[in-house]
Nucleic acid binder design. Structure first.
Lengths: 134, 134
DNA sequence: CTTGACCTTCCCGTGACGGGAACCCTTATG
DNA sequence: CATAAGGGTTCCCGTCACGGGAAGGTCAAG
């Protein structure tokens, strides 16, 4: 199977597939003409990678997960550990974004948004008072 | 004021300050020895930039916000527009992360996490069934 | 005079690809 | 048979917002 067909089947761009080969995530065979030749197994791995990435796992995590996926004598604890760590990362990011969101929402609310220059958003960015009552 | 002092005052790394000059956000003067010479105004701008970045604004947004900050005949509506758009971006990211979080939490919960190979996390990544009841 | 703490520019690396150039291979059609 | 279209290939640069580190100039103190 050529890269175009593999791309269609897995939903990944051909560029991404080539990149995954470059960094050693997959090792598709090569035809006599130099074209990559993807097996069903290759496609399964690509699908796996695509879904892992869609769940937000880094390439490093994907590499580890793929290794566990291929290791039938794995311990599910190893998989769970990776997923849990990733979950913590995501929760941390959410907390950061929620913090930004509430601050921004407050600022946006407090700004008249008219043609006058007075703007509490600029005031906060300049001075840096996150005070609530002062 | 040298870059080290400016860095201390603004809380920004010297590297970042040089970068901001390189991309034209600030234009500090130069001494006879070639050293950058930061005025109070430069420091104000740097503080502004640091706080805008801390609120998650992109460099492009920061450039626009800084221009508005310096333009005393600005309309607060222009500032508000940028902040609102950024707020939407943040909310979108939060929604994506929340989606990942709930999926991951469900998967982590369903994984025994012992020394056996059976792992619903790997099953989902391989197959892609997000089904609830099937 | 030397030491050490600054400062300067320059270049490479990050993560995970995307865009595009320059070129090769295969197949269909006039 | 020539050619054009639509694959494929490698290679290199750009993204975003810096960080690390090298090689070298400058300055204040002892």
């Amino acid at each position: 199977m050529n890269i175009g067909d593999a791309a269609t089947r897995t939903g990944l761009p051909a560029k991404t597939i080539r990149y995954y080969e470059e960094i050693g995530l997959i090792r598709p065979a090569r035809g006599a003409n130099g074209y990559r030749d993807f097996s069903d197994t290759d496609c399964h791995k690509l699908t796996f990678l695509g879904r892992a990435r869609a769940h937000g796992f880094s390439i490093g995590d994907c590499r580890a997960l793929l290794a566990l996926y291929e290791d039938t004598s794995r311990a599910s604890a190893d998989v769970k550990r990776i997923a849990q760590a990733h979950l913590v990362t995501i929760q941390t990011k959410i907390a950061e974004l929620e913090e930004m969101k509430s601050t921004l929402a407050r600022l946006v609310d407090s700004c008249a948004g008219d043609d006058r220059p007075d703007c509490p958003i600029l005031v906060e960015l300049a001075a840096g008072s996150t005070d609530q009552k002062t």
